[in-house]
Design a binder for these strands. Sequence first.
DNA 1: AACGGCTACAACCGCCGACAC
DNA 2: TGTGTCGGCGGTTGTAGCCGT
Length: 245
Amino acid sequence: MGRSPCCEKAHTNKGAWTKEEDERLISYIGAYGEGCWRSLPKAAGLLRCGKSCRLRWINYLRPDLKRGHFTPEEDELIINLHSLLGNKWSLIAGKLAGRTDNEIKNYWNTHLRRNLLSRGIDPVTHRPLNEPTTTTSTSNSTTLIFSAVEDKKEGEENYEVIIGCQEQKNTSQEQCPPHLNLELRISLPSHHPPPQLPSKGIGKSLCFSCRLGLFNNKECTCCINRDDLVSLNTGVVDYVNFSQQ
DNA sequence: AACGGCTACAACCGCCGACAC
DNA sequence: TGTGTCGGCGGTTGTAGCCGT
């Protein structure tokens, strides 16, 4: 028994959206907001699958979309982010205001990928095409140097860890790419207080590395006083291990 | 003008993780 | 703990429009 279909396919439209369908979707979301995509089509009077509505809204109708040509700065950012994150289009899109994952994915496949190939760069590994695909040497490894700031406001249970990230090529002949500040934000759910180390007593908590899963609790001895966590913690992530899925 | 190949991008499909029960 | 539902993601496909012949 497989899962039930997300909608009744026999009674749904497919293909390009009409202007009227767009207007219905826009007016419905304008009145009731996003969410509950499964029931939205019926409520909005659309003969469409909920997924189709979601995609149409997110990729095309959302008012905050930028659209239009990508700037050279955006090109460079996408290439750099892709070299770090791979095909994580939603993550990449999160760093480009007004751009959608679908838009970036299409742009990558039609423009940037070809662009890199024409420059003799492998769009998957972001290394020269004539370079061996597997390398056991550490001479070409890339290191991500991260710094983190824990941001917890007084009286709040939730907090964020803001990661600044810089890429450093461990090779002499390669040019160093522009440093990236990903400003990744990791938030724990508000109903989950920060994990505590009971043996260390009140005011102690897991360090940043433990929370990210870079070390387990047994290996890590750096139990920092909670007050100190508001200051800067730093660490190093092996890029190869970090980026592989 | 007609045709075929190519390009760009909107839309679909299938899978997965989170969550509720 | 198992199962079903839902939203989200990445890969792929379909097609309109452009361009060269």
